[in-house]
């Protein structure tokens, strides 16, 4: 009887001590990194995507998740991006943030990820699927219109232009072009000489520029639909010593574009907010993981930048990513 009691007392005492210790442990323990979020962009080493990465990492730091950033070396490498998404599914990542290289071809693999119960947030360039958790990006149609407006404000009502698009089939490319064209419908004085695709390759864009300048002597403005096209065209114009004679209306704000803008090679840029895309992409991926409601579409803002306003405090924060 007494032995039994002693055993009970010993047991309860140890329970008491144990629970006190575990309490203390609970209060002191810090949270581990809970989620791994894969961010796959169109191209791994490019200034635009570097800012997306910054945004993603800022969110990762804030919400205490691990960000695994990746992308093909070549933006046209759609198969490469598909393989990356496949690998991410196989590696059992907790959520996927994807900037799709192709509007159609990324759909099966993205839906496969959804079927594997992985939340998918599409940023920058959407895919042709309604099953994704969210799309975060510039309203590209509106972006195209903004491009048209800045063209009008630079050249007035009449001009002979060439549209330099990037990848045929990419949603953002198609949408920007349609936005631009819908605006230009109201300006009959603007003549579109040709629309070309540089495949998001600066060198191709440069070569095309040289050819186009020779082909169309009346050509006075290039309208470029992304950063590669803008930079490539600017290099071509500088190569032909046509800066000031042939105007450039461009997209995005890589350091090289900014440099061309300061040197009056480029007259106007429509600047997106890649940091917000990266940040919000990760933020809503976490929200989707936690079963919180996520808005289906989130529009990030953009601004029209020219040489005069680029160093205004509110603009320089957008144009020049703040690197800690």
């Amino acid at each position: 009887m007494n032995t039994l009691k002693k055993i009970i007392i010993l047991f309860l005492t140890s329970l008491l001590v144990f629970s006190l210790v575990s309490c203390t442990k609970n209060t002191l323990s810090t949270r581990e990194n809970e989620y791994i979020i894969k961010v796959i962009v169109k191209k791994s080493d490019h200034d635009f995507w570097a800012v997306v990465k910054m945004g993603a990492e800022a969110a990762g730091k804030e919400f205490n998740v691990t960000i695994d950033f990746d992308g093909p070396t070549d933006e046209e490498d759609i198969d490469g991006q598909i393989r990356m998404v496949e690998a991410a599914i196989n590696n059992n990542v907790d959520a996927l943030v994807l900037a799709a290289s192709d509007f159609i071809r990324l759909v099966p693999v993205a839906e496969k990820a959804k079927d594997a119960n992985i939340p998918v947030i599409i940023i920058d360039s959407n895919i042709d699927s309604a099953n994704m958790d969210s799309f975060i990006g510039t309203d590209n149609v509106d972006g195209g219109r903004k491009l048209g407006e800045s063209l009008i404000s630079v050249v007035g009502n009449s001009s002979n232009i060439v549209i330099v698009n990037f990848v045929k089939g990419a949603a953002s490319a198609t949408e920007r072009e349609s936005g631009l064209l819908s605006l230009l419908d109201d300006y009959p004085g603007i003549t579109i000489l040709e629309t070309v695709y540089c495949n998001s390759d600066e060198q191709i864009a440069t070569q095309m520029t040289l050819a186009l300048i020779k082909k169309y002597p009346q050509l006075d403005t290039f309208v470029c639909l992304n950063a590669y096209a803008t930079v490539g065209v600017a290099r071509g114009v500088v190569g032909e010593s046509k800066e000031g004679d042939v105007l450039i209306i461009g997209f995005d704000s890589t350091p090289e574009e900014i440099s061309f803008l300061e040197k009056d090679v480029i007259q106007s840029l429509v600047v997106q907010n890649p940091f917000s895309m990266g940040y919000l992409g990760v933020k809503y991926a976490i929200a989707a993981l936690n079963n919180e409601s996520v808005p289906k579409t989130i529009k990030t803002d953009f601004k029209v930048i020219n040489k005069e306003n680029m160093y205004l405090p509110e603009n320089q924060k957008l144009v020049f990513p703040f690197v800690d």
């Binding site: 804030e62 990513p321 703040f322």
Partner: peptide, 10 residues
């Protein structure tokens, strides 16, 4: 600490 987030308006 979240300077860029503030600059971006987030």
């Amino acid at each position: 600490p979240q300077q860029q987030l503030i600059y971006t308006g987030l």
